[in-house]
Design a protein around this nucleic acid. Structure first.
Length: 283
DNA sequence: AAGATGTCCAACCGCTCTGTT
DNA sequence: GAACAGAGCGGTTGGACATCT
């Protein structure tokens, strides 16, 4: 045992800010191979210039296969409100009652959405109408076509929409500590996620520009079939990228994880396209 | 069209909790 | 029981994006 408390990391030697796709791939492939027994030593072992805490946060809040993204259903929001009233800002406790949701996400939703709603008006119904018209949280944009439960991949009826390569409901394994955990793939591939911003290496764009028919419409709420065809293209791109990064493996578990990652990331990239509002053309 | 302002969310910070020696 | 390391938690912030003027 050393003396005094060691800093969690050397701030001058770690990268901070937005995670890159490469970093995500490294982290997810490392955790799939070796698990995350020790967050402190993980970054070095995984070849990441990141603080262990940062890796942990990234994994838990974003890369973890069972993390559910997208809309909070009315039921989920009401659960948050009720639990917050009873136990206060115990976000991790609240998160434990909402499968697939992270404490950070719940906290954000509370601070940016639910708190205001409660303070301005205690009438939930009136506020829901307001939220719907304002399109708050940019996730309501598809609310007309989705029932409150439509965005939930757990709790309600099991969604089994077919996705390219993976399907909702598909099970897969990954390591958590020393034990192998089997998880069911939840719906993370939501059109509304196109709004999420993501920092992308400019070189990646030059590669994307080489892809045919990968053009983002002005309206990100494109028909589902259109998005699916785009996703096929992006899938090809990610396969190429994995090869380039030397992350391609025969290990089926890892491949599944990478698919998960790519499915998360492609939304970021699509969102980026939308943000840039630039047509992608062949060089 | 462009600057100002508002909103949202990923990530960081620092503290507390828990397990280990 | 004390001291420490590592993990977890909750508050806060910075930056990207959206909307307003």
């Amino acid at each position: 045992m050393g003396k005094g408390r060691a800093p969690c990391c050397d701030k001058t030697k770690v990268k901070r800010g937005q995670w890159s796709y490469d970093e995500d791939l490294k982290l997810i492939s490392f955790i799939n191979k070796y698990g995350h027994e020790n967050w402190r030593s993980l970054p070095e072992q995984a070849g990441l210039l990141r603080c262990g805490k940062s890796c942990r946060l990234r994994w838990i809040n974003y890369l973890r296969p069972d993390v559910k993204r997208g809309n909070f259903s009315v039921e989920e929001e009401e659960t948050i409100i009720k639990l917050h009233q009873s136990i206060g800002s115990k976000w991790s406790k609240i998160a434990s009652k909402l499968p697939g949701r992270t404490d950070n996400e719940i906290k954000n939703v509370w601070h940016t959405h639910l708190k205001k709603r409660l303070s301005s008006n205690t009438n939930l119904n009136a506020d829901r109408d307001e939220a719907a018209t304002k399109g708050s949280l940019n996730r309501e944009e598809t609310s007309q076509e989705s029932s409150p439960n439509a965005s939930m991949s757990s709790g309600g009826s099991k969604i089994s929409s077919k996705e390219d390569g993976v399907q909702i409901g598909q099970t897969f394994q990954y390591l958590e500590g020393h034990s192998e955990v089997t998880k069911t793939l939840q719906e993370v591939d939501k059109p509304e996620l196109l709004e999420i911003s993501f920092g992308v290496d400019p070189e990646i764009w030059s590669f994307i520009n080489g892809l045919d028919s990968f053009q983002q419409p002005e309206n990100s709420l494109a028909p589902r079939a259109y998005q699916d065809s785009q996703e096929d293209e992006v899938e090809k791109w990610f396969k190429h990228l994995e090869t380039e990064l030397g992350l391609e493996e025969n290990d089926s578990q890892q491949q599944r994880s990478i698919v998960m990652l790519t499915k998360n990331h492609r939304h970021h990239h699509l969102g980026e396209l939308r943000a840039l509002d630039k047509p992608l053309t062949k060089p």
